[in-house]
């Protein structure tokens, strides 16, 4: 069970949340100009990152608000929680003492204290930049977008 720090509600069980897939996938500026392949890639193709991944989450049985999260897909280490619409924060240098593992996440249930604090070992997984529609520095193995 992950403990996820909702920016509004504080630390809650994973079962209260709904996963919203990869974050920072912008809607095409001119959808009409896309060919079928590009449109399909926007709709269905997502990075399959091994390591730090930016994703959207919804606190569905709590405050019903969306937020973004940086999570390590290998260790499940939650590295940052940040509002919708803000750019992906850079991951800080490894700092084992403060790494936001699930059990050490901000733990007040009555106050929303979770800011975008970033401190975690980043298992940098990929170096090949994706060709896809992702705006920010999200990377994925090349095969992920083909």
């Amino acid at each position: 069970m992950l403990l996820i720090s909702c920016p509004n509600c504080g630390s809650r069980d994973e079962t209260e949340f709904h996963y919203g897939g990869q974050a920072h996938v912008p809607y095409p500026e001119n959808p009409n100009e896309l060919n079928d392949r590009e449109w399909a890639e926007f709709l269905f193709y997502r990075d399959n990152t091994k390591g730090t991944f930016a994703e959207r989450w919804l606190h569905s049985t709590g405050c019903r608000q969306w937020f973004n999260m940086l999570r390590d897909t290998v260790t499940y280490d939650i590295q940052a929680v940040y509002p919708m619409g803000t750019p992906r924060p850079a991951t800080a240098a490894p700092n084992a003492a403060e790494s936001g593992t699930a059990s050490l996440a901000a733990d007040s249930t009555t106050t929303g204290t979770a800011g975008p604090s970033i401190a975690a070992p980043s298992t940098s997984a990929t170096s090949i930049t994706a060709t896809s529609t992702t705006q920010s520095g999200t990377t994925a193995p090349e095969g992920a977008t083909k």
């Binding site: 509600c9 809650r12 069980d13 079962t15 209260e16 049985t61 709590g62 405050c63 007040s108 249930t109 009555t110």
Partner: peptide
Amino acid sequence: RSFTPGTALTTE
């Protein structure tokens, strides 16, 4: 100490 009277939380 954490959940005091007059508090309401939406949860499961």
